[in-house]
Every structure is written in structure tokens, then in C-alpha cells.
Design a protein around this nucleic acid. Structure first.
Lengths: 148, 148
DNA sequence: ACCATATAGTCAACCTACTTGACTATTCTG
DNA sequence: CAGAATAGTCAAGTAGGTTGACTATATGGT
């Protein structure tokens, strides 16, 4: 693999990721959820499991806990999440999704499925599964990095 | 493809893209080019062709021309680019890479090639080529979107 | 040829998402 | 049970973008 080919692959990967992000965002907005930005998606994904503390979220997003706290403020203000007392630790607070937060999560899933369905039409259904498997093997673990 | 599978694919794609971005950035820094951020890569790629005006760059990056101008200011200040008079349009200025800018571009190519080489070791060389071809087919065209 | 309009670029002010630093309240530990 | 660590917040500063206003040059219709 030559350098220019590596750059072509890199550019394609970044373009595909950017396009997917935008398509999901547009789909979420089209389903009536305004004021939510792509970067929020990573927070929704973490909260959807069984809630998280602000510190959990900060580690997951790779930002400071102050930044995570502001993000939660915003999500609470817009009705997507709420702070509940943490069972078993009076210092912490458990941030969980509201019903609207769940609905927004489902909207994002639908939008993603729509895009992936289009990919299936282009590549073939089986190839999409292969693509997913390959990407999982080269994707690093650790905190997500919402911004470049 | 079910919703959860679409989300798994989306997450893998975004994680792979984020990881690649970070690895390239680390490789560039390791080769002695400091003060350059991942978002600059898209500007380098556009300037590497045969230079560009600030407005060209703004369109390519999907930002305002004021933001593109600030980006060019920064690249000039750090020695990666320079503004030259535009042949044939006295309003415009042609932004081109300096020798240091070219060296940084080559460093990014090397870093990308290094990561892609690792992918080849994991997936097999042939599979990387297939991956590139698949990604090219699902990647949208149009301006890049450096930030989510 | 000329004036109206469009385009390239910049300056200034502002906005947003993040940072660092300082602090309180609670929990863990030796 | 005192000292250190942890969860969270408040406040101030920073970086990278935005919108709006402006100048200089180019383009096109009459």
C-alpha cells in the first residue's frame, strides 16, 4: 500500500463518517428533535445503558467533568435527561434519559438504519455486514472523540 | 439490518474514523510538526493540489470565508503556507504551501500509511483494498465536515 | 464606455463549547 | 477518625467559529 493509497482510504473513511454523522443528525431533526447536536449522540449512547454520573460521561466523552456537566445541563434544559439522586453515593447524581430522551435515541437509530439501508442497496446486504465486521476489528476502544 | 445493528455499524465507523484521525495527528506531531490540529489536514489536502483562494478553502471546508481566512493566518504564522498575489485576479490571493507545509503533508501521509499498514496486518492486505473501495462507494461528495 | 451588481478579502464584535483553577460536600482508607 | 481521594459545581479564560459591515476589484447589461 503506497502513501497516496493510504490517504485515499483515510479520506474515504473520514468522508463516510462525516456523511453518516450528518445524515443521522438530519434524520433526528426531521423527526422533530431540535437543538440536539451530533456530539450529543455519544452522550445519549452512554446514558441509554442504565444512566451514568457526570464523571462517567466525562471519561466516556474524553472531556473534563465540567464540560460534561454543562452538556448535561443543556440536555436537562431541553428535556432529554434528568438528574436523579445516586443510590449509594450522596456525592454523585445519576443522569438518566427522560421519555423524550428515549424517543430521540430511537429517532437516531431509525435515521442510522435508513442510511445503512441505502448502503445495502449500493453494496449489497452481505457486504454491509462484512464492512461492519471489518470496521469493528480496526476501531480502537477507549473514549470516543466527538471532534477533530 | 436491524436498528441495533445499524447503530453498531455507525459506532464502529465513527470509532475507526476518530482513531485514524488521532493516530495521524500523533504521527505528525511525532515527526516534529507542532501546533497543527487535525482539522488543518483538510486544508492541507486542498492546498496541496495547486493552491487555493481563501474562498475556495472556505467552500471546501464548509465554513465561512472569515473562518477560512483565520485558518490561513494561523498556517502562515506557523510557516506552513503563504499568501501570493493571484495571477489574473487582483482581488484574490493564492494561498500555497511552503516547503515546510509540503513536509508536513508528507508526514501526514507517512503516518496514515503506518496505520493502514497495521490494518493490513489485522485484516489482510487484500481486505484493506476492498475496504477502501467499499468506503469510496458510500462516502458522499461535497465539502468535508471537520467537526461534529 | 459606464454604472450597477457581484465577488474576494478583511476588520470588528459576538457566541459557544471547551479549558483550567478553586472550592464544597461526601466517601474511602490507614 | 483524621487525612486523602472523589463527585460535582462555580467562575473566569481561551479557541475557533459566527454574523455584519466594509473596501477593492471584477463582471455584465444597456
Amino acid at each position: 500500500m503506497q502513501h497516496s493509497e493510504a490517504m485515499a482510504l483515510s479520506a474515504a473513511l473520514l468522508a463516510a463518517a462525516g456523511g453518516l454523522t450528518q445524515r443521522i443528525h438530519e434524520g433526528v431533526v426531521a423527526r422533530g428533535f431540535e437543538g440536539v447536536r451530533p456530539a450529543h449522540g455519544f452522550a445519549f449512547a452512554r446514558l441509554a445503558r442504565d444512566g451514568a454520573t457526570v464523571t462517567d460521561l466525562a471519561v466516556h466523552l474524553g472531556v473534563t467533568k465540567q464540560a460534561a456537566s454543562q452538556l448535561v445541563d443543556e440536555m436537562v434544559r431541553k428535556g432529554y435527561a434528568e438528574r436523579r439522586p445516586h443510590p449509594g453515593d450522596a456525592r454523585a447524581r445519576l443522569v438518566v434519559l427522560t421519555e423524550r430522551g428515549w424517543a430521540c435515541t430511537r429517532a437516531a437509530e431509525e435515521a442510522a438504519a435508513e442510511v445503512v439501508r441505502e448502503w445495502g442497496a449500493v453494496l449489497g446486504e452481505g457486504e454491509v455486514g462484512v464492512l461492519r465486521e471489518r470496521l469493528l476489528r480496526i476501531a480502537p476502544q477507549g473514549p470516543v472523540r466527538p471532534s477533530w
